[in-house]
Deep mutational scan, measured.
Amino acid sequence: GMDVRRLKVNELREELQRRGLDTRGLKAELAERLQAALSGPSSG
């Protein structure tokens, strides 16, 4: 899988935006949010 901790802030935001998620917050928050999205149930 993707290691969200290795991504830069702008990369985290890009991935979040692609999934329609909130791109605001600290890098740690963005990484946590993206990780949750990646490990969560895949819809679609």
Results as ranks from 00 to 15, higher is better:
Ser39His: 13
Glu15Leu: 09
Asp22Ala: 06
Leu16Glu: 01
Arg19Val: 03
Val9Lys: 09
Arg5Pro: 07
Glu29Ser: 05
Ala37Gln: 04
Val4Trp: 07
Glu11Gly: 04
Leu34Glu: 00
Ser39Trp: 12
Gly44Ala: 14
Glu11Trp: 06
Gly20Leu: 03
Val4Glu: 02
Gln17Ala: 15
Gly20Ala: 03
Arg19Leu: 15
Glu14Ala: 15
Asp22Leu: 05
Glu15Thr: 02
Arg24Ser: 13
Gly25Glu: 02
Lys27Arg: 12
Gly44Asp: 11
Leu26Glu: 12
Ser39Ile: 12
Arg5Thr: 13
Lys27His: 13
Gln35Met: 15
Glu32Gln: 14
Gly40Ala: 14
Gly40Ile: 10
Asp3Arg: 07
Glu14Val: 10
Leu30Lys: 01
Arg33Ile: 02
Ala37Gly: 03
Asn10Ser: 14
Gln17Lys: 15
Gly44Pro: 12
Asn10Gln: 14
Ala28Asp: 09
Pro41Lys: 10
Leu7Tyr: 06
Ser42Arg: 07
Asp3Trp: 15
Ala31Glu: 10
Lys27Tyr: 11
Leu16Trp: 01
Arg5Val: 08
Glu32Arg: 14
Leu7Lys: 04
Arg24Met: 07
Leu12Gly: 00
Ala28Ile: 07
Gly1Cys: 14
Ser43Met: 12
Arg18Leu: 08
Arg24Glu: 07
Lys8Asn: 15
Leu38Asp: 03
Leu38Trp: 05
Gly1Gln: 14
Ala28Asn: 09
Leu30Ile: 03
Val9Asp: 05
Ala28Ser: 10
Arg6Asn: 14
Glu14Gln: 13
Glu11Arg: 08
Val9Ser: 05
Leu16Ala: 02
Leu38Thr: 05
Ala36Gln: 11
Arg13Tyr: 04
Leu12Phe: 01
Ala37Asn: 05
Arg24His: 11
Lys27Phe: 10
Lys8Leu: 08
Ala36Met: 09
Leu12Ile: 06
Ala36Ile: 09
Pro41Phe: 13
Val9Met: 12
Leu21Pro: 00
Glu29Asp: 08
Glu32Pro: 02
Glu32Asp: 10
Leu21Ser: 02
Glu15Phe: 06
Lys27Asp: 04
Gly40Phe: 11
Gly1Thr: 14
Arg19Gly: 01
Leu21His: 04
Met2His: 08
Leu21Thr: 01
Thr23Asp: 07
Lys27Gln: 08
Ser42Leu: 13
Glu15Asp: 02
Arg19Asp: 01
Glu15Asn: 03
Glu11Ser: 05
Gly1Met: 14
Asp22Gln: 05
Ala37Ser: 06
Val9His: 06
Asp3Gly: 06
Ala31Met: 15
Thr23Val: 07
Leu16Phe: 01
Gly1Ser: 13
Gln17His: 13
Arg13Ser: 02
Glu32Phe: 09
Ala28Gln: 10
Leu7Gln: 03
Arg19His: 05
Gly44Lys: 10
Pro41Asn: 13
Ala31His: 05
Arg18Gly: 03
Ala31Trp: 08
Glu15Gly: 02
Arg18Asn: 06
Asp22Asn: 09
Arg6His: 12
Glu15Tyr: 06
Pro41Arg: 06
Gly40Met: 12
Arg5Ser: 15
Glu32Lys: 14
Glu32Ala: 15
Ala37Arg: 02
Leu12Ser: 00
Glu29Trp: 06
Ala36Asn: 10
Leu26Arg: 15
Ser43Lys: 10
Gly20Ser: 04
Arg6Met: 11
Ala37Val: 08
Leu26Tyr: 08
Ala36Thr: 08
Arg6Ala: 13
Ser43Leu: 12
Leu26Phe: 09
Gly1Phe: 13
Gln17Thr: 08
Val4Thr: 06
Ala31Leu: 15
Arg5His: 15
Glu14Met: 14
Val9Trp: 09
Gly40Leu: 12
